[in-house]
Simulated scan of single mutants.
Amino acid sequence: MTETVRYRDRTRDYYRALGYPSDYVWSRFDTVPFAPLAKPLSEARIGLVTTASPPDLGNRDASGKRQVWSDAISPAPARLFTGNLAWDKESTHTDDRASFLPIEAVQHGAAEGLVGGVAARFHGVPTEYSQRKTMEIDAPQVLARLRADGADAALLSPL
């Protein structure tokens, strides 16, 4: 029989085990900050967003803090850095870059007419434990980059 793992309970217990003085506070939105597509998906340009870092960890500012970064989808990167992220490294791996940055799958969808096209760049978002930084700094930067790329929608692929 398979045991159900309650993600929020497991996360709360994990943070307590690390000694954090208070439980993790989950983001909550009373109004959803999304909008319906203005055109059919078959006409929409898709932007890709991942939480992986560049292989050279070049997404750091002068103080060493990770920041939003972008790179071309062509040629697709062979790999990205994921060792700094929290995932079950005993049960799985991130050797398959396409599993968390599906460039080829979206390109195939464009070739088949499922989506209108793919933006020329993908964007990386640092995983931070600061909801304030995510909402006030990182999210607006990603949105501005997606808009600059002419993206009509974004596919978010976190690890």
Rank of each mutant, 00 (worst) to 15 (best):
A62S: 09
T2F: 03
S91Y: 13
Y14W: 12
A98P: 00
T82H: 05
E128G: 10
L48C: 05
E90Q: 10
H93C: 10
D71S: 06
V5L: 14
F29R: 12
T31N: 07
A78F: 03
E43A: 11
Y20W: 08
A120W: 02
D23Q: 13
D71R: 07
P102L: 09
A105M: 08
G113R: 10
D149I: 08
R121Q: 01
V68N: 01
R12S: 14
A148E: 10
L159W: 07
L159S: 11
R145C: 02
G150P: 06
S27M: 07
V115E: 04
P33M: 09
Q107K: 09
L18H: 11
V25C: 09
T51N: 11
D149P: 08
T11K: 14
L156K: 05
L41C: 12
R16A: 13
F81P: 03
L101M: 01
Y14Q: 12
L48D: 00
Q107M: 12
T134D: 05
R79H: 09
E90N: 14
A120H: 07
R28V: 01
E112C: 10
A111F: 03
Q131A: 14
Y129D: 14
L41R: 00
L57N: 12
V49Q: 02
R147W: 00
A44R: 02
S70R: 04
S130M: 06
G109Y: 14
F100V: 03
D149C: 09
L101D: 01
L48E: 00
T92K: 15
A44C: 15
T51R: 13
T11M: 11
S91A: 15
P36Q: 08
S53V: 03
T2C: 01
S74A: 14
R60F: 05
A144S: 14
F34R: 04
E3H: 13
S91Q: 11
F81C: 12
R6Q: 09
L155G: 00
T11G: 05
P33H: 03
D61Y: 07
H123R: 10
P102D: 10
L37V: 07
D152M: 12
T50Y: 05
I103E: 00
S42Y: 02
Y7V: 15
T31L: 07
P126G: 06
A86I: 12
A38F: 04
P102K: 02
D13T: 10
D56Q: 13
F81E: 11
Q141C: 06
A17T: 09
A148S: 13
M1D: 07
T92P: 04
R121H: 07
Q67A: 08
V118Y: 03
F34L: 10
E43H: 11
L57D: 05
G109D: 07
W69K: 06
L41A: 14
D152T: 06
T51W: 04
G113L: 15
D23T: 15
S27Y: 04
K65F: 07
T51M: 14
A120Y: 01
R28K: 01
L80V: 02
L156V: 13
S91N: 13
I137P: 02
Y15L: 02
D23G: 06
G47M: 04
K39M: 11
